[in-house]
Amino acid sequence: MKAVTLNGLSKVYGKGKAIAVNKVSFEVSNGELFGLIGPDGAGKTSIFRMLTTLLLPDGGSASVIGLDVVKDHKKIRSRVGYMPGRFSLYPDLTVEENLTFFATIFNTRLAENYHLIKDIYIQLEPFKKRMAGKLSGGMKQKLALCCALIHKPAVLFLDEPTTGVDPVSRREFWEMLKQLKQQAITIVVSTPYMDEANLCDRIGLIQSGDLLTVDTPANIISAYPEQLYAVKADNMPALLKTLSAYDEVLSNNAFGEYAHVSFKDQAIEVNVVQSYLQQQGLSGIELRRTPATIEDCFIKRLSN
């Protein structure tokens, strides 16, 4: 039995006007860390809400730990943990009160599954009398994760836990998820940050309600059809412009200090490109082969 199964799941808002989720199908195995990756408005939150039985699908079906999200919503609710996007605890309750409250609501006690949250809670303990609203961004997240874990859920749904969070806290958060994975909890997480994809076992890329692909990050990357080159010059804006106007260029995207470029002719000589760029008046040119990233793959699929 799969932990999560989606079968042609669809969601339409406002009398057929906006298709938020368009016939999405994928499976998540037990103990897997699955990432749903896509920008805002891709339909991630709608999928999460349907899986946590908070929204009714308009088409297709889905099941969580073998239970149907429509018929068995009561059973599912007691077996899954859910952390909605943004901060969603009570800011006027203390850290401890929030935890105790959610423990009670889920029919358990803090002590019962303490081993699950121990590593995270230790960091929160010095602030346990502090109002949740006064915690730092990273701490809030940790508390929210504790609250979602308190009843030892079979599946943990985390909707954009790292949105708007600085890179340091993001990294810490993913460390926590890695540890949780070792406790055999299935985790489904969504994020708009492409660089987080590599931290998942398998990912689904999603855009405008359509699931573009589902696979392991390594497979998705190796399936990138062309050879990519990282190109750099002293004047980056000029380089990007020149590349866009260059006949041989198939795709051309800025990636940090480099531009990721692919060419129509896969056998193109690096020298040819280099001398062309020099002719166009660019200096300090650096050109080398580079493996694709998930973001390259996403852009590739979007432009198709």
Binding site: P39, D40, T163, G164, N253, E295, F298
Partner: peptide, 12 residues
């Protein structure tokens, strides 16, 4: 934070 949550193509 002008590009928070924006897709990679639009971001560029």
């Amino acid at each position: 934070e002008p590009t928070g949550g924006v897709d990679p193509v639009t971001r560029r």
